[in-house]
Amino acid sequence: MPRVIELNVNGAARRVNASSERSLLSVLRDDLDLTGAKYGCGEGQCGACTVLLDGEAVRSCITPVSRAAGKRVTTIEGLEQDGRLHPLQEAFLETGAMQCGYCTPGMIMSGVSLLAKGANPNDAEIVHGMQGNICRCGTYPRIVAAVRMAGLHMKTQRRAS
């Protein structure tokens, strides 16, 4: 059976030894101890397992690890740079966009992918872009506000630089 022996995760080459049909989620969580991405449904319906492959949000629970080989994998653990949170992480804190926090990593990764695509999405675009992520605590309006806030912030930063 073919195996995946190396993954590029959060900017570093990580050695693994996983049969290629295993889910990316299980390799990240069980082999690399990157537990930020969560299991929620196993069928790509809830978005709790969302990570980025070359900047694009994917549901890692239904993504075979072989698909991640040779690509840049970004998980929630890789967003913080030198102790500085990503603007969307900051915005989640600012808007209090969580209750139990179980959906939060997946929400943030979906949001980061959305923000990378459209610089400054409006509410309808955010709702459309985040539709695949479930928050059972019902913090959706706050998450929309957080993505909007981060979008504005990133736009201002781009202008300044």
């Binding site: 537990t35 929630i76 967003l79 949170l85 989640f92 804190l93 209090g96 926090g101």
Partner: peptide, 27 residues
């Protein structure tokens, strides 16, 4: 007052029960 452990939630650092790891763990 903001959620006291909010930062652990947005960074994925908080360990839920399903995130607990032990040496020699079986599934």
């Amino acid at each position: 007052v903001p959620k006291v452990d909010g930062r652990d939630m947005v960074t994925g650092r908080h360990r839920f029960a399903s995130d607990v790891k032990r040496a020699g763990l079986l599934h």
